[in-house]
Design a protein around this nucleic acid. Structure first.
Length: 554
RNA sequence: GCGCCUGUAGCUCAGAUGGAUAGAGCAACGGACUUCUAAUCCGUAGGUCGCAGGUUCGAAUCCUGCCAGGCGUACCA
């Protein structure tokens, strides 16, 4: 509809110029928007104001010239007016909204989809939590965000791959192995102190117990470096399996799990470091090897090989990001916790140095989550091993509520997650508010069937009966869904869909309370059923993008 | 110190490439269930958009400075 108005305006401007009403043929991009205030019409354009200086005319004169030349043969426009400093407001004939409903029924679960991505191969990497402990709430936000963003991109015609990067190499893995080994020794009666720098959580004890059941006391007699390695590999494998399970129960699945260790095994880390040496952008100082990231805009150079000969995490990350582009992704998006923001310049440096444009790479920072219970902060200490895991949250509030709440904020805004609030089944908790619409409409359909009323198709005569303000309002809202999805993809902002759904839900509940769908008039009932089924489809489509279920009953 | 993010109603937050009178929910107050699910709806009230300048027809939005909070600033990941 907006596009139609745009075209009408453009054509009107051209006509006006041909007839001599407008001196210049230079027209700016036509901007059409839906005004916030109802009295300002359904659509509004500022074109007359924008053109004023080029046309050397008063905005109001320009507006008059355009309105005069609008071709309203289809009768879409009920009224136009010039308002304020020169806005042209368009009031749409309410009947003209109706075809939106047919489109929704026809396109069904593809309504809102588009081809703006043009099949571009794009990778979204998210969560990528270290396999040294279970996922916590912050990872949950990253998971909900990344998954929704990927769904939206896919829906908009991108060729999306979701990837999880497993840091199964390096120091933290060694620490994991040591942690488990110490607990294992304690289990076998050794009186030893558990080191401070090891992971404290109870899950380490559980892993040690499993090894004990497996191997008995056999590990006590072996060389320490071998047992640490064994414990590390065993533990990491178990923890990754746990992470996969948690994500699965959260409704998030990945297309690819990428191992950091594999970059070493395949020699990709060595290779990229050698390439950089040849380019003379790696040098030695104080026994360490430094990558000249400063030359690429970082604030200082960064170590890639420590003076003890071990590579840093950054070294494998260089190889990893190069590999992403080598695999043919045209765009690469990393979703990180906001506390890693200082890491961005060096990754961009490495991408440039590897010969790819950093413009093709984006990092989206997701702000931290404050966990609350009844308004009070929940103490979270990783050190002491006291934290609420994502699995805890899912089992307490459910994945639908958790996901939806994670997606009710812009990703750059910190989020207070209140466990008590997330469980409340009231308007304070928006997920139920939206899901309730789906359940209510399902119920209407069931009730209709009981009375022998089936959802019939498009019937011009019936649809023409939809003229209550609440009905037109609902249809308008339905009509703006595709644009919401498009903007959501363009700006990587899934929360736009969340807010859209809450708004649509509000329009529906208001309608539901004021009007009955199943009436004594068969034609009207048919029309209203057609309308609410369209609402149901859009609610379902939106929730699906967010990874949230749309229940038939609540 | 430097860098990134945030600052909008009592609380939690939206606010499109700069648009007209800044919007929701919660909390407060007053109403609506013999009728399709009251997990709902309707109404009232609530604001110096952190502060100060600047850019222009027009700023919550862009620019500069300041204030407050969070995060980062490793040969950790």
């Amino acid at each position: 509809m907006k596009q139609k108005i745009k075209n009408l305006i453009l054509k009107a401007a051209l006509n006006a110029h041909e007839k001599g009403d407008l001196p210049s043929s230079k027209f700016p991009d036509v901007e059409v928007e839906a005004p916030k205030i109802e009295a300002h019409g359904d659509f509004s354009t500022n074109i007359a104001m924008v053109m004023a200086s080029v046309q050397k005319m008063q905005p109001k004169r320009i507006a008059e010239a355009i309105i005069k030349n609008i071709d309203n043969q289809e009768g879409i426009i009920a009224k136009t007016e010039i308002a304020g400093p020169g806005f042209i407001n368009f009031f749409i004939n309410s009947v003209s909204w109706h075809p939106v409903l047919r489109r929704i029924h026809e396109e069904d679960d593809r309504y809102g989809a588009s081809g703006i991505g043009k099949g571009m191969k794009i990778q979204v990497e998210f969560v990528s939590s270290n396999p040294t402990g279970p996922l916590h709430v912050g990872h949950g936000r990253g998971a909900a965000f990344g998954d929704a963003a990927a769904n939206i991109l896919l829906f908009c015609g991108y060729n999306v791959e979701k990837e999880y990067y497993i840091n199964d190499s390096g120091r933290q893995i060694n620490t994991l192995g040591r942690s488990v080994l110490f607990r294992y020794r304690q289990l076998l009666g050794k009186d030893i102190e558990f080191p401070d720098d090891c992971y404290q959580g109870d899950y380490i004890r559980d892993l040690a117990r499993q090894i004990k059941e497996d191997k008995g006391s056999a590990l006590l007699d072996q060389r320490e470096d071998e047992t640490v390695l064994y414990c590390a590999q065993f533990a990491a494998k178990q923890i990754i399996a746990g992470i996969r399970d948690d994500l699965k129960s959260f409704g998030v699945e990945f297309d690819n799990w990428f191992s950091e260790q594999s970059l070493y095994d395949s020699g990709k880390v060595d290779k990229v470091l050698n390439d950089f040496r040849k380019q003379n952008i790696i040098y030695e100082k104080d026994g360490a090897h430094w990558f000249k990231t400063k030359e690429f805009g970082d604030e200082k150079d960064r170590v890639v090989i420590r003076n003890n000969g071990q590579t840093t995490y950054f070294a494998s990350d260089i190889a990893y990001h190069k590999d992403k582009f080598d695999r043919g992704f045209e765009r690469v998006i990393d979703i990180w916790g906001a506390d890693h923001h200082g890491y961005i310049p060096r990754i961009k440096a490495s991408i440039e140095a590897a010969g790819y444009s950093k413009e093709r790479f984006d990092v989206i920072l997701v702000q931290l989550v404050n966990l609350l219970r009844g308004g009070e902060p929940v103490a979270m200490s990783t050190r002491a091993g006291e934290f609420i895991t994502l699995a805890d949250v899912i089992s307490e509030v459910g994945s639908d509520a958790a996901k939806f709440i994670f997606l009710t904020r812009h990703h750059e805004s910190p989020l207070d997650f209140d466990l008590e609030l997330a469980k409340k089944k009231t308007n304070e908790n928006p997920v139920f508010y939206v899901q309730y619409v789906h359940a209510r409409i399902s119920s209407i359909i069931r009730k209709g069937r009981e009375r022998g009323i089936e959802n019939t198709g498009w019937d011009e005569k019936a649809i023409a009966m939809l003229k209550e303000p609440e009905e037109i309002n609902l249809i308008k809202s339905l009509g703006s869904y595709p644009e919401t999805v498009r903007l959501s993809a363009e700006f990587m902002e899934p929360h736009r869909i969340t807010f859209y759904l809450m708004n649509l839900a509000s329009s529906f509940h208001a309608y539901y309370n004021k009007h009955r769908v199943l009436t004594d008039d068969p034609l009207l009932t048919c029309a209203r059923l057609y309308l609410v089924v369209a609402v149901k489809k859009v609610i379902r489509n939106g929730l699906t993008l967010l990874g949230v279920s749309a229940p038939e009953k609540m």
